[in-house]
Design a protein around this nucleic acid. Structure first.
Lengths: 340, 340
DNA sequence: GTTCATCCATGAAACGATTCATGACTATGC
DNA sequence: GCATAGTCATGAATCGTTTCATGGATGAAC
């Protein structure tokens, strides 16, 4: 018995089972087949250890059942969670995710889009940052957090509402003089609206506010400088801060702590995103929480939707507030608490 | 000018340029072609907006230039960093990464491996947990942290050395009575050696030690119970803890803090992995740091190596110790520090 | 017994690339 | 001018699947 050393193909199975190649195809795809044939083919597949080769199928059907997800990286927990939920949503629909990391690099963002053109994926879910990148319109694309044009659907949290919510929350916590800090790029995207919402909220609540929007690079140094400049006789001039992202908020808390400003006793700090330790533990700071799971669901639903006419060009999903460890009154429950 | 609505293929380019299809192929692949042909083809490609279809190529060459990475998820920063560096190492070699999340689920682990059989990837880098999973040997596979057999190369940090290092470090920090806690599965993998190394180290340092290895499920409750049971008159019976992973260490620190045991004043805590906030900020706890970048590099090098005879069946890479915020003497620098 | 409809297996063609045996052409040497 | 070697474009065959026009077999209706 000289077994073929090559991996068996459908033709091999067909020959061995004494049926036509089309019949094998239908068995493999679970289509209706006569009982006798069904059995013969199934047995032969088993015997030869046949595994279907996906490339043949893709070439023929022009369907990869794969969606490309374009994202800077996965080190930021916000991205990691997004990837997590999008993968889950795709898996539910029997799709695969092809992950493309851009590291905020324009060339890579472009390359990744080209890849889809090479028929490696059926559609794109993209979280991109480069200002002058234009998206292809001949392929299903969904953009997260960034609006390109009405022809490219965009999904985002309710950033304006979140900013507004932060202002109201700070008021509720007793703040009178607040500030907003965020790192921006030249790009205007949906998260830019956090500031607008915050300003609206502050005006509604009749709070003094100040905004610091800095470009990456010297941002951290400048923020620290700003904070130092506003400490007079050991007291911080602001009693509430709304920070554009949790990741920045966490860094700001480090700076405040270093300067002996207590959070939350001396100043309330609210971030944005809703990051938690290990994705399921404590929130790392108090935060306006993005509904990442819903965002993922809508993205997938949209990119897979055959009927492009029913697709909204901008979907915004509701956020909510969550307390982080910074807002627990530790001092009361543990007077000797040391920093962990 | 009636342009073809279909995406142009190589045949279209060949016809339009008045050359043979093979010539187009060689131009696309950057092989030597006569200058005149070169120019004609390049121009036509440009004019038609031709993008090569990867599937045709894959089908013919049987090479996907893609490596599948099988991993539980990306929410744990350890996994996220691994994914990050493996992707970078693959990209350097012009390979793509296909990410497969298993969520610790055996069925998924198996499915993912089947996928590669379907010729979606040229090889596998796998971090799996299910005890009775056996790896295919007809495909290049590299396993992380888990040794299957001599025929399947395994890459891991020096877990034994790391455990030993933790013991010595605790001694150095003045500890006398220490404990080791880790969550285990029925699976015996490389990280299991952390305990062995720790015990060796404790014996070398002449320290009292105790080990708690618990199965997932009630582990957290049991650990807390253990800690409570060892607090007498406000003092914790142990002055040093070596925890199996940073993620558990972080949770243990939360428990200790809740019970008014100060870290590091009352007890030193050392974890394993070297997790940092956002991948590049502070270590979340003091830790034995895994050389993730090197691990990634070796994995990629190994899985791509054509000559399987030169690969080692087990590669262990050196670890190092890093201080987390827990080991800074906060009390001295900020007597009023509140927990953040 | 004949006709018709139904069901379903058949197998060639197609998907879009690469590969390679072939032969056309040029250049060189004598 | 002829023989030889070298270069390089050609295009048919191939990879492994799906698809679909074809027709054989079966059963129902009369």
């Amino acid at each position: 018995m000289s077994s073929n050393p090559q991996k068996p193909t459908m033709a091999d199975v067909a020959r061995e089972a004494g049926v036509a190649i089309g019949t094998v195809s239908r068995v493999v795809n679970g289509e209706a087949v006569g009982e006798v044939y069904q059995k013969k083919v199934t047995e032969t597949i088993e015997r030869l250890g046949y595994k279907y080769n996906n490339m043949g199928r893709v070439l023929r059907t022009n369907q990869t059942n794969t969606i490309a997800m374009i994202i800077p990286n996965t080190l930021n927990p916000y991205f990691a969670m997004l990837v997590h939920h999008i993968n889950a949503a795709l898996e539910k629909r029997n799709y695969k995710m092809m992950l493309c990391f851009t590291e905020y690099d324009r060339q890579r963002e472009w390359d990744m889009i080209q890849m889809v053109r090479q028929k490696r994926a059926d559609g794109i879910i993209a979280l991109t940052y480069h200002p002058d990148l234009n998206m292809p319109t001949d392929i299903p694309v969904v953009s997260i957090d960034r609006f390109f044009s009405v022809s490219i659907p965009c999904v985002a949290a309710d950033n304006f509402g979140g900013g507004r919510m932060a202002a109201h929350k700070l008021k509720e916590l007793g703040c009178q003089k607040v500030a907003h800090m965020r790192i921006i790029s030249t790009l205007i995207n949906e998260p830019s609206k956090r500031k607008d919402g915050f300003i609206s909220g502050c005006m509604e609540c009749d709070m003094d506010y100040e905004c610091m929007l800095l470009h990456d690079g010297e941002a951290y140094a400048k923020f620290e400088e700003f904070i130092r400049a506003n400490i007079h006789e050991g007291r911080f001039a602001f009693d509430g801060l709304f920070i554009g992202t949790d990741s920045l908020a966490w860094r700001i808390v480090q700076i405040l702590r270093k300067l002996h400003i207590r959070v939350p006793q001396d100043v309330q700090v609210i971030g944005f995103d809703g990051l938690r330790m290990f994705g399921d533990q404590e929130y790392i700071v108090s935060s306006i929480v993005q509904p990442i799971e819903d965002i993922a669901e809508v993205c997938v639903e949209t990119v897979l939707s055959k009927d492009r006419s029913v697709v909204h060009s901008l979907t915004t999903l509701p956020v909510h507030y969550a307390k982080g460890p910074t807002t627990r009154d530790i001092a009361k429950e543990d007077p000797h608490a040391s920093m962990a």
